[in-house]
Amino acid sequence: MEQGIHIITVATRDLVAARRFYVGGLGWRPVFELAGEIQFYQVAPGQVLGLFDAEMLSEDIGDGRDHGTPSGFTLAHNVHDADAVHRTVERLERAGGTVLKHPQPAAVPGMLHAYVQDPVGVVWEIAYNPGWRVEEDGAVVFD
């Protein structure tokens, strides 16, 4: 299999709250959505994040279990300076996010980060790390 992920699908019990966070908080625009079912957001070339109604996702998987709560992972968004960490966290909180860790220095020297949980249950790390960058082609480079 070619190394790559094209769709990351996350279950949500409240698509309206999820949309408020992703559109109002992150400033993203869906590339496709079916009301009450799913929203897709372009997150990288060839990659989308899908927010799928939790009951419908569990039905789609079809193993009889509840797959409605994401856990054990974080999504991260790196910004270009430390002030942007503060501004982004404030914006996400206003859009319905719950701040789990306010902006503060990380274990990595020079890095500032915070954690915000979205209404879906996904934990987002918002960080400034001067020790890495993203090239125009999307490659992540560690300095």
Rank of each mutant, 00 (worst) to 15 (best):
F40E: 13
F21L: 11
E135F: 00
R133T: 07
G50Q: 11
V120R: 05
F142M: 04
V140C: 03
Q42H: 05
V122D: 15
V120H: 10
N78W: 04
P70F: 06
R20C: 10
R19D: 11
V122S: 15
R65E: 06
M111H: 11
Q47T: 15
V79N: 04
G96Q: 01
F52W: 01
M1A: 09
F52V: 00
M111E: 15
F142Y: 04
V48S: 02
V116Y: 05
D14Y: 11
V43I: 15
L75D: 04
W124A: 04
G97N: 14
R133Q: 05
L75T: 03
A35I: 10
A35L: 15
E90R: 14
S58Q: 07
K101A: 07
P103F: 07
T69K: 10
Q3T: 05
R65T: 03
V116E: 09
E135G: 00
F52H: 03
E125I: 11
T69A: 10
A82L: 12
V134H: 03
D60C: 08
N129Q: 11
I8G: 06
G97K: 13
I61N: 12
P70K: 10
G4M: 05
H102S: 11
E125Q: 12
P45K: 09
G46E: 10
H80T: 06
D137T: 00
W132Q: 13
E90G: 15
N129E: 12
R94Y: 01
R133D: 03
G27H: 15
S71Y: 12
G62S: 09
P109S: 02
A84C: 10
A17F: 08
A11M: 04
P109G: 01
L57K: 04
T9R: 08
Q42A: 13
H67S: 12
V120N: 15
G68N: 09
D66C: 00
A82Y: 08
V16S: 12
A17I: 06
P130Q: 02
A76M: 09
Y22L: 03
N78F: 08
P119D: 13
K101Y: 08
F40L: 15
I61Q: 13
E37N: 02
E90Y: 09
R20I: 07
G46A: 06
